[in-house]
Amino acid sequence: MTTPHKIPESVLVVIHTPDLEVLLIERADRPGFWQSVTGSLDTLDEPLIDTAARELFEETGIVADGSDIVLRDWHLSNIYEIYPTWRHRYAPGVTRNTEHVFSVCVPRDIPIVLSDREHLQYAWLPFLEAADRCFSSSNAEAILQLSRHVHPT
């Protein structure tokens, strides 16, 4: 059985505390590459909010229950070139991905359960430090915009 190609549409979920500490996770397949939660749609018709909730749970164990822990859709999309090292996961000729940005505010002491096959460790960092540590420019930019989306003026 062949593995289907990844869909070039994904979510980015910035996890943060009320005082804007940001949770970053280190990729298992690329040690030293730190990021927020990311993941592609499983099916073309999967709602983005469902993708975000699924990836949040799969990668951190955090459940967005809609009452205490609520995913916020920023209604912001980034289109970027897929890193050449990961293009083999997509259909031939696919070089760009559309990423939809979400955030979720959680208590600092929330238990984090990483997927061992995807991530090595996690760190809570002040948002400026977190942005500096991200390997993805769109992830860093989302973190830098966090206060504007969490505390709009």
Rank of each mutant, 00 (worst) to 15 (best):
K6F: 12
I7L: 15
P8R: 13
E9Q: 13
E9Y: 06
V11H: 01
L12K: 02
E21S: 05
E21F: 07
E26D: 04
D29S: 10
P31Q: 14
S36K: 02
S36Y: 01
T38Q: 01
T38H: 02
G39F: 10
S40V: 11
L41H: 14
T43P: 03
D45C: 11
E46A: 10
P47V: 15
A53E: 07
F57G: 03
E58N: 09
E59Q: 14
T60Q: 09
G61M: 07
G61N: 08
I62E: 02
V63G: 02
A64F: 06
G66L: 00
G66R: 02
D68K: 15
I69D: 02
I69C: 07
I69M: 12
V70R: 11
V70E: 05
D73Y: 03
W74K: 01
W74N: 02
H75R: 09
S77D: 08
T85A: 13
R87Y: 07
R89P: 11
Y90I: 05
V94L: 12
T95C: 08
N97T: 14
T98V: 11
H100K: 05
H100G: 12
S103Q: 08
S103I: 06
V104C: 07
V104Y: 05
C105I: 13
V106C: 03
P107V: 06
D109W: 11
P111D: 10
I112Q: 10
D116K: 13
H119P: 10
H119W: 07
L120Q: 07
P126R: 00
F127Q: 03
E129M: 00
A131F: 07
C134R: 10
S136M: 05
